[in-house]
Design a binder for these strands. Structure first.
Lengths: 192, 192
DNA sequence: AACTCAAACTAACAAATGTTAGTTTGTAGA
DNA sequence: TCTACAAACTAACATTTGTTAGTTTGAGTT
């Protein structure tokens, strides 16, 4: 939901519809109807459908980038850094699940420089993730299993958390964090 | 890839394009072009775009359903049943990643009775999954953590395996199975 | 009262969409 | 050689798409 100006409202509505039906299946008329206006009126606030997508996806991608930079530059242990990453994903997901859905499913509809920028950020994020895991492994904090398998296993769960949070809201945010760390990390920590 | 008759070719090409761009962003002309024909000619083999999607999604969903029935009706231990489920997901993913992508991303474009049928199967699958976990918990085989958290954590990784298998083919199928079980189960098995 | 300006509107556009109708083509069997 | 038929084609269709141009509205300021 975020800010209350008209443009932010559009982004919010669009993100919700994109989540439900996917970017391509949502028309400008769909978005407009949801806002009780005509499609043409949307263009007083945004410049194109494509730009709506870019605004949504790039912004959240940058939040993850910033989060990764903060966490990986802290001097904490690898395990503690992973815990902070889990918190980051859960917090951003709880804050706006639809935006996370767009990030996961609709980035493929970005074009040219926007797509390139997004992919660069995604790569950098995964590199940061791997660096933490690698350090944890040489440390002895983390079990010596295939690094990519560990990373993608963790990331799969964190990235698609929005899917099942939408269906079951059984736990509070803090409880979720605790449980997720238990499930995700106990398979990784050597001593476990 | 599957069978070699023309209809199966169309389904195969369609699945690949749906994976790359999503159902709505792929036109009949796109599919036709990829098959070196005109869009109208497709209708000699299929009855509608919608039917292409149904054929793809329902078939793979039924394969998972059959797999779950076979596994959960075996008398094996809960852990061993989970291992078999991991194998099932990996095998079906390696066999045709694009079809798995459709299952994950494009089921939302099913309509009416097809959607209902799909959702019924999905629910049943997850119920089967939970039943295994529950038995494992009362057994003492599986750690006593929130059941839904465990299930969705496992399923997230298994369902989106096609995403990173597409990017890194670093391990053989058998090695993948071993590593995945290590990563996914060690967090769950009580004794770990 | 006159002016400003954001934000809505109506009307229209070219392009792309899924699909149908009717026609041609090429190959296999009689 | 004639026939049958699957499978391709061309042409067209009604809708829906993103977007633009020009106009109206209504509230705040001078």
């Amino acid at each position: 939901m975020e800010k209350s100006d008209r443009k932010s409202e559009i982004l919010s509505v669009a993100a919700r519809l994109f989540r439900e039906r996917g970017y391509s299946a949502v028309s400008m008329r769909d978005i407009a109807q949801e806002m009780d206006m005509k499609a043409a009126s949307l263009y007083n606030h945004i410049t194109s459908k494509q730009q709506i997508l870019v605004s949504i996806v790039v912004q959240i991608a940058e939040e993850f980038t910033v989060g990764m930079e903060r966490i990986s530059s802290s001097g904490d242990s690898a395990i503690h850094q992973l815990e902070q990453l889990i918190d980051l994903h859960i917090e951003l997901t709880l804050h706006d699940p639809s935006v996370i859905a767009c990030l996961n499913n609709d980035w493929m509809h970005l074009t040219d420089s926007d797509l390139k920028y997004f992919l660069k950020m995604r790569d950098k994020y995964e590199e940061g993730f791997k660096a933490i895991l690698k350090r944890g492994m040489t440390n002895g904090e983390i079990a010596n299993v295939n690094l990519e398998v560990i990373m993608f296993s963790l990331l799969s769960t964190l990235r698609t958390f929005y899917l099942w949070y939408g269906r079951k809201k059984l736990l509070s945010g803090d409880e979720l964090k605790v449980q997720m760390k238990r499930v995700l990390l106990n398979g990784i920590i050597t001593s476990a």
